[in-house]
Design a protein around this nucleic acid. Sequence first.
DNA 1: AGTGCAGTTGACTTT
DNA 2: TAAAGTCAACTGCAC
Length: 501
Amino acid sequence: MLQVVWFKRDLRLEDHAALCAAAIRDRILPLVIVEPDYWQQPDVSARQWNFWRGCIADLGDAIAAKGGQLCIRIGDAVETLAAIKAAHGNFVLRAHEETGNAWTFERDKAVRRWCKAEGIAFEESRQFGVWRGRRVNRDRWAQAWDRMMAMPAQPAPPLLMWERCESDPLADAAALGLADDGLQVAPISGRAEALATLHSFLHERGEHYTREMSSPVSGESACSRLSWHLAYGSLSIREAYQAAQAHYRELPLSEKAWRQSLRSFIARLHWHCHFIQKLESEPEAEYRPMARLYEGLRPRSADTVKLEAWSEGRTGYPFIDAAMRYLNATGWINFRMRAMLMSFASYDLSLPWQESGTALARKFIDYEPGIHWPQCQMQAGETGINTIRIYSPVKQGYDQDPAGVFIRCWVPELANVPDAWLHEPWKLAADERAQLCPDYPERIVDHAAAAKAAKDAIYALRRKPEARAEAKAVVQKHGSRKRTTDRKRAGAKADQLKLAF
DNA sequence: AGTGCAGTTGACTTT
DNA sequence: TAAAGTCAACTGCAC
């Protein structure tokens, strides 16, 4: 029977379980559905579509090179599948499991209902170390992840029989109603770029990963930069994992920096799935804090003046504004800066993470809902089980950009401010300030006071007995079980479980 | 040369 | 993936 392989966020022919399963059975109709409804959602943007679109075009080329033709359809998923059934007859539908936002979750449920009603088999394969459903046992999760990542990555099936199918031209952003979002540098998408990025990270850029990833200056090159390729699947997590593992094993023991970097990178691939698993197990986490007690902590709807000032990089804190403007211009920023921006929105500005998180999601080209929403909650301190991490914008600035090059690059209003005041222009005398940086905004909040108030509010909540009980339940459901490796404590605490989130 | 002391550093705890 | 506070050990210096 005809095999329809529905490509979603897995736009590659290699290590593609659904494609492999189809290839050993019958003719393949490779399908991408561009869903206009999805592109109306508040968490998506033109920059994401443009990257995605490039991946689709690249996959189309790869299929054409093998003698086939990628079928691109614009429309509702169920209607599209119904039209394909009408034109091509019955089929088996194959795809990868997806842990997306609430919209794609509902869409998948609708597709499953339709398949059931039509007597069509809908077979989903696993592509991440993420297991379906709410009742996933976290106790053996890490071992299962290791096994999943160690399984051989299948090459693109060599001999394929293709079904041809009527196809729509690839829409541009405007046709999907997506306005320009200020992206200044569009990254290159597609398989070749993903592989080249992986290679340059593992062999050239990554040597001082652990030391250099935290600064937005060095992080631009020292981070793997694979996030958007992994998000749209032009490279699989398993391919990245196995390449890193293989390279690690080849490295002589004397290559200390490289070895540490690769261990750290591999740990982060693990975290990728660890976070997606949270949203998979609790889809409500897109809207509600895992610890429900925190629901009243912040105003339900954002102060729009503050939200816009933050979102546009006009808070009056140079390092915050530089980071936000960099993100707005490039669609990417390193992890530490993401955490800092979320911390500032949540603790300094009391913005609900649902709204600040939506604004951030749109900015990230690599938006991966399963990572994004649990991260937003965690950085906003609403999981109930993590240490509250309130970032000091000034301390982070001195730590990560001591020379001020990043601030000067992204906040040109401060060009005339001497280094000594660059991180804290409010300390300039009023007349000097008026002369040196008249166009740079005043601070919209006092960090010290706001941080103190936020801390007090959260700890007041946390001390309640109900909060303790709830935290225990959250750890049981979502917490990672990681054995302590601290040698100093190996004797006394060897069996103690370290609970990290 | 040894002592007292202010200031610094690092490990660890608390919020 | 934080920051501030505490405490003990250490350092440099004056006497």
